[in-house]
Design a protein around this nucleic acid. Structure first.
Lengths: 232, 232
DNA sequence: AGTTGTGAAAGGGTTCACAGCT
DNA sequence: AGCTGTGAACCCTTTCACAACT
């Protein structure tokens, strides 16, 4: 997996700054635990505490954060609220982003009423489907448009993210249309392997694939890693 | 991420055989595309064709497969059906596995009626919830039990996999109970970071985290990798 | 005492490139 | 001609270990 070059928000990091995608994924995990700590009234946390909760090594946590700046203070660790703000800023979730949802079947409706998105800085602004019975109606506070209206409605929403929860037929054309609308980030629930056009990111959510992974692990139990013996 | 030592199903691979978790994840992707090819009547496929459909390099595909045996034939490539069988066997999905589902809210019901599981070798055999209104009733052909009955019912089902789709409260105790029932593989939809007890695997499905990753990528567009120029 | 941030080393994963084969 | 499987090289990621600091 190739690293991503990050934009030099901080001038002192200009030249060769690269961040691994794995680091970005862990950022989410850190923030989630930090939110829990914040809710519990914790103000400061050490890298070994946070690392243990997330399931990584303290060194990894410190290295991950070091790509984006210096957030810790010696002997007091990290300020929880400040670190939440810093990570949110990096992830781009410090202000709410509009997302469009395509496909209003069982899964689509479940996603619509899934509060976790709003908590984490994403707002499903509009829904599209091909079923004319659904179009024009309002689901969980969001109006459903016909997919044919995508080109008219989407540009008014200032969305760069789309969630795909349709059937398998016609997904490729849909990807092309989204690409033309400059909606370049796709969260894809359709169980079909898609080759993204240049400049587009497709993130697959394949639940069966995760089950397959677990199934493999269950069969091949002998682990290399011993218990890391992290002390609190 | 540490590699996993695989059991020596083939004696010729006994000694130090290790497989990366990433390799296992790609196995799912290969199989999915192979099923599509099989459905289209394709009998043989070259590594560069299959690799392109999946979005990996041909070398990577060949290396991944080489961990499990020799499946290709020079000048004819891979037999699609044989490779499907081989991968299924490695993943443990060559026969149907029972899975239990805990939590019958919106998400749980969506998962229950999600056909893709059955197609890929998994069968949700029973459902558990704490809502007494649901208990005793049948949802999408599966009887719903009260969570209190978990210890009585689960052992009769021969399940090693569980899907968690409950609320956040009480998940930790649930994990402990599952561990005691030797259900060691958990697909977790609860947006809470859980530290698995020894011997247990927890695979998180955190949709918001995927959106955060996409959000980061959208902000940091400048990519290192150029288009790989794979010729068909 | 105990912490963070980071060079340097170690470890793991991917790609190259080619021998051997059809 | 063109393919697979694989040693070896390369690259990326993680971990170690310590200087600087409180």
């Amino acid at each position: 997996m190739k690293p991503v070059r990050i934009k030099p928000k901080r001038p002192d990091l200009w030249d060769e700054q690269r961040v691994s995608v794995r680091t970005v994924e862990r950022l989410s995990a850190y923030r989630r635990v930090l939110e829990e700590l914040n809710g519990a009234g914790v103000e400061h946390v050490y890298s070994h505490q946070l690392a243990k909760s997330v399931g990584v090594t303290p060194a990894q946590l410190r290295r991950d954060l070091s790509h984006f700046g210096t957030f810790g203070s010696t002997a007091r660790g990290y300020n929880v609220e400040a670190l939440i703000r810093a990570i949110s800023s990096e992830l781009g979730t410090d202000s709410v982003q509009n997302v469009i949802l395509i496909g209003l079947g069982n899964l689509g409706r479940t996603l619509l009423s899934y509060n976790n998105f709003e908590d984490r800085g994403f707002h499903i602004a509009a829904v599209f489907d091909i079923d004319s019975d659904k179009c024009g109606k309002v689901f969980a506070g969001r109006r459903c448009y016909h997919l044919d209206e995508l080109e008219q409605v989407a540009p008014t929403l200032d969305a760069t993210l789309a969630i795909l929860a349709t059937r398998r037929t016609g997904v490729e054309e849909l990807i092309t249309r989204l690409s033309q609308l400059h909606i370049n980030c796709i969260l894809n629930f359709v169980p079909k392997t898609l080759v993204p056009p240049p400049g587009m990111f497709i993130e697959d959510v394949d639940i069966s694939s995760k089950l397959e992974k677990l199934s493999f692990l269950a069969k091949n139990v002998s682990f290399l890693e011993e218990t890391p013996e992290l002390t609190e």
